[in-house]
Design a protein around this nucleic acid. Sequence first.
DNA 1: AGAGTAACCGAACGTTCGGTAGTCTGGCAG
DNA 2: CTGCCAGACTACCGAACGTTCGGTTACTCT
Lengths: 218, 218
Amino acid sequence: MVSTPPAAVSAAAASTAAPTAGRKDSHSVESLLAVAVEVFNVRGYDGTSMEDLARAAGITKSSIYHHVSGKEELLRLAVTRALDGLFGILDEPGAREGRAADRLEYVVRRTCLELVEKLPHVTLLLRVRGNTVAERDALDRRRDFDHRVAELAAEAIEEGDLRAGLDPRLTARLVFGMVNSISEWYRPGGRGAGVEAGELADALAAIVFEGLRNPPRR
Amino acid sequence: MVSTPPAAVSAAAASTAAPTAGRKDSHSVESLLAVAVEVFNVRGYDGTSMEDLARAAGITKSSIYHHVSGKEELLRLAVTRALDGLFGILDEPGAREGRAADRLEYVVRRTCLELVEKLPHVTLLLRVRGNTVAERDALDRRRDFDHRVAELAAEAIEEGDLRAGLDPRLTARLVFGMVNSISEWYRPGGRGAGVEAGELADALAAIVFEGLRNPPRR
DNA sequence: AGAGTAACCGAACGTTCGGTAGTCTGGCAG
DNA sequence: CTGCCAGACTACCGAACGTTCGGTTACTCT
């Protein structure tokens, strides 16, 4: 790290309820995690020092260890949260009942919404490289998710609702590659040219399932 | 970094021509860059130490400074190479002549091919976070590229070849998000379930422009 | 043979890293 | 009122970081 520190990411601000005890601007694991995820996403996990986290949270390095066991636990907490959200989608009725193509479209849309809702956690998950135990565990669960949606695509092709000749594995990778790419530019708030999550999911599903070109072609 | 070192990435192997002078297994900037890019992609730029690079290249840390000015120059060399390749596409005839929709499709296909051809360099480029000067410069040029293809999408919609109502900026982001996602799983060689670059570009263009669903829908 | 040089090395540099030890403090339960 | 302790602090640790430096090796050229 050589760079200029681009100013703190804004202290605390999370944890709306129940400071329980302690001083006035006290931290919980929750508020600390929120700050950490934010900083990790700006600097990268490896590029973030405990000093950076402490400065952003408004406490000292050593105080962080009062709440969590270390840097890696913060990462584990964040990616676990993201993964639980993603796997939750696969258990929803819309992902379990009906024709495979419709279930696939449901999962695609819901994944978009989930990504936007848990944007910082999912962003972090998508950048994990497998350098630590927590990262490798996360990669394993991600692979499991990818496998499940590839099966869904395979079923949809078999049932004849998607074009024949599509490679289900490749299709799933590309489609969810598009979904995941949202995390690289989407910022909540929607002001300016910002898009609302629902519109975003609609636009993406339209491109993926109906294509870009005008239907009366040739 | 706490992790276990997952073994070296394989030494040298590049630099086919003209060792000019020096010892038998000598390094050029070129071969060193090839090794560095490989390691950066496995460990992440921040997660890679000069020790890691030295070990992978089969020389000592200090010897690296005989070839390059430091860690950041290696990054700059790599992402510059990737960016030059991408911008080169926009100057090709297929990207400058004809209907905008066809030009857009051309750029999408060529970007896929370029990404596969320069996979390590482009992968590195796509992971840049903006923590150093070299990274921020790269991000600026990337933004410029994104802007150019968004203009292409806008033209194609105006000309009536793409569905009306599409947001050109959003469309460009999603489409090239899908293209870029290839770097996260594609590995060259093609053995097993591997795909050839041409097939990959065809499959992606088909999904993006024609959609997944079977045409005789209603 | 001797000069010149590209490539490399080992040892050390100042700095920053993630993490630990011990202390102070303020609000709450008794 | 008092004792407790969660939660913060200051001070520090050994290790690892990117980088520098003086010196050595192995080669080419004259």
